[in-house]
Structure formats: C-alpha cells, structure tokens
Design a protein around this nucleic acid. Structure first.
Lengths: 340, 340
DNA sequence: CTGAAAGCGCTTACAG
DNA sequence: CTGAAAGCGCTTACAG
C-alpha cells in the first residue's frame, strides 16, 4: 500500500505538504505544488489510511449500526423486511455524508459498547430496540452520541426518531369502524409500558372509545411475532365461538399470517376477517388481498435518523433531539365493508 | 478514552507489559503481573484501539460487505429479502470469528476499492454481483482477498460460492413436467452468458429436451425483476392467446408477481397458472397459495462464504476456491396437476 | 520476566 | 508557502 511518505518523496516535498493538499488546505500550498502532488496521488490511486487518521483526529467517521438480536434463533434481524429497508436506507445516506457504517448485531449492551470503543465510533444508530435495559445502558454509557429509532424514554437524555404510533393505532381502528366493524381485535407483540406497541394500543382504544366500545381482552393478542405469530393468532381466532370481524395488527407480517390462517381453513378474506397491517413493507403488496396498512415514510425516517446523528456529532452540547414522524393509512384490499 | 499508557501507569509496569497481557503472550509476563494488569483493565473497561492496532499489524479485521446497487432508484439492495437474509447471516458469522463488517453499497468498482484501501480491509465479500465488468475489476484490483457469491468467471482467478443453478432450473421444470405440464415458460432477469440465470435457463431447457419439447421464445421473459417484473409478466401472459400453463421463475418475487397479476384478473392460481419460484425466501411462505420453490440453504451459503473468506486471508498463496452448493425442490401449493 | 525505543501512516502546531 | 518534529495508541524486535 502506498503511503503519504512515498508520495512526498516522488513529488519532492514534505509529507506535511502532501497532507495539506489531501485535506484541501489551499491556503497552505501553492497551486503549482498542489497540482503536482495531486497528479502523483491520482497516478498511484493513493487513498489516505483511515486508521492513521482516526488515531489522530479522534474522528473515525464510523457509525455503528446497532441491531439487537431477540430470540435464540434469531440469526438475523435483517430477515425482517422493515429492518432490511431501514438499514439499507441509512447506510446509503450515511455514505453520501462521508461516513462508514459498521454493522453490529448484538445480544448484550456491552458487545455494542465494546465495538464502539474499539473503533472509536463517532456515533451509533440503534434500530428496533426492544430490551429496555440494554437500550438504556447503551445510550447512557456510550461515549459517542446515539440515535435511537422507534423508542424514547422520557426520563433520560437521548436522541430519538419515533412515529406517531398512537395515531397509527387510531387511524387503522377508525378505518375499520368507518367500514362498519364493531368487533375489532388487536394483535401485536407484548404491550409493555414504554413501547411503540403500547401507543398503538392506546390509539386503538381511543378509536373504540369514541364509539363507546370497550376493547375485548379475549381479542387482544400479544407476544406473537411476525408471520408465524399471525398464523397462530389466526388459528386461535378461527376457533373461537364469537369472533371479531376485524383485526388491528402492529406489523404487516402479523396481518399476513392471520390472512393465511383463515385462507388455509377455507374462510374468506376479507369476508370473514378484515385486517389492517402496519409499516407498509414489501409483503403488504405481495399478498392477495393486498394489505390495507398504516404507512410510515421509511425514507424520511432514515433521513431524520442520519441528520440527527450528524447534528449530534457536530453539536455535542445539545443533549436531546426528538422527532415524531407522521403516519397515514393506505387502503388496499384487506378490509371489507360490513353491512350493519 | 483510556489508553494502554494509563493502564501501564496505574499498574506500575511498562506499556509493553500491558500489551503482552492483552495479547495473551503468557510466556512474556509473570502470572502475578498479568493478574494485576488484567484487573485494572477490567476496572476501566479498557478496550484496545483497533485503529492503532491495524496501523501496525496491517490486519484491520475488517471485512467489507459489498452490495452493488443496480438501478437508479435502488436505494438499497437490502429491500431484497434474499440479500437481507444473506447479509444478516454473514455478519453474524463474521462477528463470531472476530471480524468486523463494514457495509458498502456502491455503483462503481472504485467506490468499493477505495473503501477497502482506506480501511485496509482484510477482505471483501460480494453479494449478488451483476455488472460483470465491475465485479471483475474489484476481484482483479483488490489487494485483499475477495469472495464472490453467486457468480464465477472461468477465465480468472477468484474465490466463489455458487449454487448448482442448472440443477435448480432442471428440477423445477422437471417437477412441472411430472405434474403433467407441457407448456412451460421461463421468467427471470436478462439471460446473459456468465450469469446464474443462464445456468437456470439451461437446466430448464435440459428438462424440456428430455420430453422432446423446445422452449417457446414467446414464453421466455427476461429483464424483468422482482414483484413488479412478475406482475408485468403475469399481465403479458394473461393477455396471450396461447398461454403457458406453468412458469419457471428465477426468483420468488417474480413468481409472487405473476400470481398476483392472475389473481387481480380473477384467474385461478394455480388453476390457470402454476409457478415455481427460486430461493425459498420469506415471501414464498407469506402468500397464498404458498410457493413451490427451489430452496437453497442460505445458512450453508453464508457459512461457506465466511469460511472461504477466512481461509483466503490465512492462506493467501492459494489462489482459487470454488464451492457449488446443492439445491432442492420444496413443494407447496403453487403448482397444480394437469390432467392430460 | 521486564523495559526503552522505534515505528505503523498520518496531522498538527511551531518555525522559518 | 514549506519543512522538521512531536505525537495519536499501539506492537515488535532488541537489550538486559
């Protein structure tokens, strides 16, 4: 690998001069030398060694993309279409801004923290935090700024990009109500206190309350994830004596699973069950009937996270940044009108 | 950030001793000092600075995960469920082996090469190469070893992990023939000479030839990708006077698209069109009818790629490594028996 | 078993 | 505008 020293030797100047032309400190180098040096750099495809740079500047330009692993079996979060899309967008945007992204899936907070320290990461973006204690620990103990996507803790300083989840839960439930449904269930992972799921559940309750309807606990499912979870829920629903006519889901995949479970039993979709998904990921346009779902603007989310990250790096004195993004209903074919 | 120097000071030893205990050179440090130093390291959560290490050792332990971007619009390859899964698996395996993974999407070969040089990456794994010239350039010019997934060039030295694509094309076509189909089309991206698609097409032709059937060019589609491509193909098929009864697809998403196009027109699936997908990705189990598809063992593919990468790093004298993985048909519900 | 010194490739004051 | 020197945090021969 060619070094700055060799470039300097070939150009007949000092390494400091080469360094100055690399860093565009035009005031410090004459046009002529700069030109000559640049040519030699081009010729050799010289690229400055980031390890050496980062050693001095304390700025590695590395952003850690932190992907928590949930289950024992979860060999990767990237299987989740939502995560894949988000990670891809964030990586692209970060590159355009001159940052490098290091992928880091982890189970324990210390794994993430160690990687950040090891590489002197300039910052970290966390996707889909779930274990609150782990997330809090990373935010609290990280020397570099962090941006958390999809979760916020009111009681601590942190940067976060969230969704108006309560509105999401509200508009999907409201849509079902408008379509004449009254028996509406709710399906999502565990509804704990701090999560986005809880907010969606609140929105669901709000919408029902407007019609004087109390949520039916028998139709509230939690701790079931993804496609498989949806199929389980669908199976349970199908076996009930008194079934809901519609389900609000916190994830497209859960909605897909419910539909499949019904279809497998020869029941009509959406005739026997209307479902609304969440996120508007690829699967919602893949299946038939296509999913009516709550769309979040993934691109904007990625842009917000990246801009927030960069702002946090450049203005470390600011301690908190919060953005809440809007959501919107996308009507497709998984909801049918109920004639009351 | 605490440094080796401060650890040394606190322990009352030289930095060299600390370095030796970090690197487990037990022969060079007495048990007692090692113990004391280790305690202080623990206490401060000290982590060696990789930038400094990589500067000396010439081994960064960074593997670049190279993701070519295809279209103008393609903000990310990770939207593709196949890529997401593969990247996730590779990242996890690489971490377990003590490597760091830097994500790098790129359009030009030089972007990838620059990143590798900049960070002195120990190696690179390329996922889904498509532009042959770009891929060849990276393989040829990279100073560090590369592993290419899903493509191989016979005329140059390279490491590759491939699939038995011809067999894949063969078994899916054979299955359709066994189910009584005779009018079988083929749908995939451009069938160029060096690609996996071409091999699948060959397998398709082989199976047809066994029955004395010549491929019908009117039923051979190329340059259409993903879900959208599938829908276009499905639309074209549906409008034909003489339609095939079955389609061999090079990707699950294309098969999904074809099914949707038929369903949107009120046609029966698989009654009016049987389809076989490829890869056995998430969508194949999401839709209804579930896809019959050619399964590749993604986990084994990731393991192979990672092991090959590490072998290439440790044994740079070996110039070529090739692995061809097997495929198998997974029968689900997207193929119907034709009574002939 | 332990330490002082040189050096990895770069940048940053400090002189001239 | 240009250069010599120190130093970022670490490891590696080389002495003792």
């Amino acid at each position: 690998m060619i070094t700055i020293k060799e470039i300097a030797a070939e150009a007949g100047v000092s390494v400091m001069t080469v360094s100055n032309v690399i860093n565009n400190k035009t005031s410090k180098v004459s046009k002529k030398t700069a030109e000559r040096v640049r040519e030699i750099i081009e010729k050799h495809h010289y690229e400055p060694n980031m390890a050496a740079r980062s050693l001095i500047s304390k700025a590695s330009h590395i952003i850690a993309l932190l992907l928590p692993l949930w289950h024992e079996t979860a060999d990767s979060l990237l299987l989740d279409p939502y995560v894949g899309q988000l990670v891809g967008l964030v990586e692209t945007l970060l590159r355009e801004k001159g940052y490098y992204v290091m992928l880091c899936s982890f189970k324990e907070a210390d794994q993430a923290l160690t990687l950040m320290r090891t590489w002197q990461a300039d910052g970290a973006i966390m996707v889909i935090p779930h274990e609150d204690e782990i997330t809090r620990r990373i935010v609290r103990r990280s020397a570099a700024p962090t941006v958390v996507i999809d979760r916020v803790y009111e009681d601590m300083e942190m940067n976060s990009v969230c969704l108006n989840d309560q509105k999401g839960g509200y508009i999907s439930t409201k849509h079902l109500l408008d379509m004449g449904h009254r028996d509406i269930g709710f399906a999502g992972p565990t509804i704990d206190d701090s999560s986005v799921i809880h907010d969606r559940y609140l929105g669901y309750c709000d919408a029902l309350a407007e019609q004087g309807i109390a949520p039916n606990r028998a139709w509230t499912f939690d701790a079931y994830f993804h496609q498989e979870g949806g199929e389980i829920i669908g199976g349970l629903l199908a076996g009930m004596q008194r079934r809901p006519t519609a389900m609000v889901c916190t994830e497209d995949l859960i909605a897909c699973g419910i539909l499949r479970a019904y279809q497998a039993r020869g029941m009509r979709t959406p005739g026997d069950i209307s479902v609304v998904g969440f996120d508007d990921t690829l699967p919602s346009r893949l299946i038939s009937p296509a999913l009516t779902t709550v769309k979040q603007d993934m691109y904007r989310k990625a842009v917000c996270a990246v801009e927030m990250m960069i702002d946090a790096i450049e203005n470390p004195e600011k301690k908190q940044r919060h953005v809440m993004l809007d959501v919107a209903l996308v009507e497709r074919d998984s909801v049918c009108r109920l004639n009351g």
